[in-house]
Design a protein around this nucleic acid. Sequence first.
DNA 1: TTGACATCATACCGGGGCGTATGCAACCAC
DNA 2: GTGGTTGCATACGCCCCGGTATGATGTCAA
Lengths: 220, 220
Amino acid sequence: MTESARSEHAAPAPVDALPSDAEQAILLAAATCFAERGFAATSVDEVARRMGYTKGRVYHYFRSKTELFIAAASYGLDRLVVEVWPEAECASPPEKRLAAMARAHVLTQIRDLPYHRVMLQGVTMVVRGATTPEERIMQERFVARQRDYEQIFRDVIEEGRSLGVFSNVSLSLQVKTALLALNGACFWFSERDGQTPEEITALADQLVGLTLNGVCGADR
Amino acid sequence: MTESARSEHAAPAPVDALPSDAEQAILLAAATCFAERGFAATSVDEVARRMGYTKGRVYHYFRSKTELFIAAASYGLDRLVVEVWPEAECASPPEKRLAAMARAHVLTQIRDLPYHRVMLQGVTMVVRGATTPEERIMQERFVARQRDYEQIFRDVIEEGRSLGVFSNVSLSLQVKTALLALNGACFWFSERDGQTPEEITALADQLVGLTLNGVCGADR
DNA sequence: TTGACATCATACCGGGGCGTATGCAACCAC
DNA sequence: GTGGTTGCATACGCCCCGGTATGATGTCAA
């Protein structure tokens, strides 16, 4: 898993189409509602009312509730890719590269929490209600992109293991645990945990440190 | 935070009433459905049909869908308390005590996954739809018990910090991250991850090791 | 001016789901 | 045997919600 091996990976898929202002506003309202109450418990009327408008506006820009959900989740994923991918392309040693990626991941997540909470809400649960074949392919494309994103973490961790700087327990378990810990803000973050940018970055650095301790810790 | 200080904590609240066989069967079916599709997306008819019976049976034993949900979550919490509390009462040094608690936590969770997935599904999201004041108090009692359970982890970690064997980053962040990592099985465990008891315990031990690396790792 | 298009609001339909009311069989107590 | 209780199944009422159809308003081009 050398430098050249990493470069073989395809660049992140391009963002579909830049959303207009109206779409942006709807996406934010939808992400906030979905993050608060979950997909099934959120009505489209509710999303509209949060912006002070009505359902017609939402259905003018999005064809279904499922499409709206996937759009919000994809937006969150796009933000992560934009911020984290450059760090993954960097030529520093794996432990420093992983730290930079993790830091960017956490900071991005805290900055746009609702979208990332939607993203983690499991598209797999939404797909049960996805009847349209078009919704299916949207959902599958999203899941694939999410897998690609996690792959860049798996790659750098695998590289660190091969160089002996990371501990050598099950790779799969190591990656899953590290990503779960790094996604922690989506579960427990609240406004009390810090408002100023300094507090946020301090918290992110501590979270990254904790996670890397787990990854780099001594074997047995 | 000495031995005596830990003993001040109240014993875990007694389990309300031992559920009958019929209630047990309904609880399992409900937990499975809730874990698969979430609270809002699961209908009571669906829970009943999973057992091959009808809705009347469910409503004979549980007064509302919310009560059913909280009962399933509480059952999972009971199992954790039963298994983990003895380890927390043990007189071993904090790092060994925490390891034993974490191991019991993970093994119990994997053994009864559906209940614990329901437990983590956030009762806070369900409470929005809880209109009955009686449901409110059920939900508040559950949240309080859940907080008490997490407190025993917080206590042992705090003790380890005061003795200098644990790293000294934010206690709150440390506890949240450790618990999230230990709950990992609820998020990513699938049948492929191990079937035999030996594979399960090996996986649990690795997960505990990873988590303790994060907690005990070097400061900064 | 006028027609075409975009951007919404409003009204409505159909279905699903929670909870309840009712019925019905079986099992006691006496 | 008979009245009461338990343990369900069935049927219904009511509300909410997703999606659509229709119409109103503004804008822009010709």
